[in-house]
């Protein structure tokens, strides 16, 4: 259970499962992996935004524990992981999200031409 919001976390999404040797260690030093974890979260947010920008949606980290999904009309939803993100994004986009959609793929292909450029401007405060 999350002691701050009282929400039960019943299931860890597979994309949040441990995948590195160091995470299997028996002793956990407080704060030790926090930097890595935050860096990964921010990287995930950046990647997801490259995709969601095609649908006019925005994704951001919220307190290092949740994510905030929003659209241009100001609608906002809190999501816990990628398993919750995609269904919510489907709703906001009117069920348009499909990684096999040629239009999205063309957008990503073109987008990535300016990958470094975009990257520099995406998180100026980072």
């Amino acid at each position: 259970m999350c002691i701050l919001c009282g929400e039960l976390v019943m299931h860890v999404h597979w994309t949040d499962q441990k995948t590195h040797d160091r995470e299997y260690s028996n002793t956990v030093v407080v704060g030790e992996l926090q930097r890595d974890r935050m860096r990964d979260r921010l990287r995930r947010v950046r990647y997801v935004n490259q995709i969601l920008s095609f649908y006019g949606l925005n994704f951001k980290d919220w307190n290092g524990s949740r994510y905030l999904l929003s659209d241009r009309k100001g609608r906002q939803e809190v999501v816990g992981d990628l398993g919750a993100l995609w269904p919510e994004a489907q709703k906001m986009s009117g069920n348009r999200i499909d990684p096999l959609d040629p239009e999205l793929l063309a957008y990503l292909g073109g987008h990535d031409h300016h990958h470094d450029h975009d990257h520099a401007h995406e998180h100026p405060h980072e």
């Binding site: 999404h13 597979w14 994309t15 995948t19 990964d40 990287r43 995930r44 990647y47 997801v48 995709i51 990628l82 398993g83 995609w86 269904p87 489907q90 999200i97 499909d98 990684p99 096999l100």
Partner: peptide
């Protein structure tokens, strides 16, 4: 990049 691959696969499975 496992993180990016996870985004792609979870997106694929959500739809298909």
């Amino acid at each position: 990049d496992w993180l990016a691959f996870g985004i792609w696969l979870s997106m694929l499975l959500q739809k298909h």
